[in-house]
């Protein structure tokens, strides 16, 4: 499923969607950036509560297709501008990380 379709289907709030047609395959949950860099796979949805500027670089470098901020975490404007420049999709879920993952599991 594409990043845009996944967000629409589950009612995730779109914060940055510069690459809407990107396919989402699989999912990784984590907040420690090095861990994510090393373990997340290409095209994964990455679910995190980390919302600082560094998530944009980590998402771009690890080739995840979508960042889902769990628990309604809101990044600042700077993060979203950086994400758009780096072609990183970011959405926001009201649910905790685990429940967000459970909800999308059959779509990714």
């Amino acid at each position: 499923m594409t990043a845009e379709s996944l967000a629409a289907k589950h009612g995730f709030k779109v914060l940055a969607m510069p690459d809407p047609d990107r396919t989402v395959k699989g999912c990784y949950i984590g907040d420690l950036l090095s861990w994510v860099m090393g373990r997340a796979r290409q095209d994964n949805a990455w679910i995190t509560i980390m919302s600082n500027i560094n998530i944009a670089a980590v998402a771009a470098l690890s080739d995840v297709s979508l960042v889902i901020l769990a628990e309604d975490v809101q990044p600042d404007e700077n993060v979203l501008n950086t994400a758009k420049a780096k072609n990183v999709n970011i959405v926001c879920s009201p649910l905790p990380a685990y429940e967000t993952a459970v909800r999308i599991t059959s779509d990714v």
């Binding site: 420690l32 950036l33 090095s34 861990w35 860099m37 090393g38 600082n52």
Partner: peptide, 16 residues
């Protein structure tokens, strides 16, 4: 607090 300091830096460099 920024999400760094996981102790994976050098291990990841070696792994990849």
């Amino acid at each position: 607090a920024l999400g760094f300091g996981a102790g994976m830096g050098l291990p990841n460099m070696k792994r990849y």
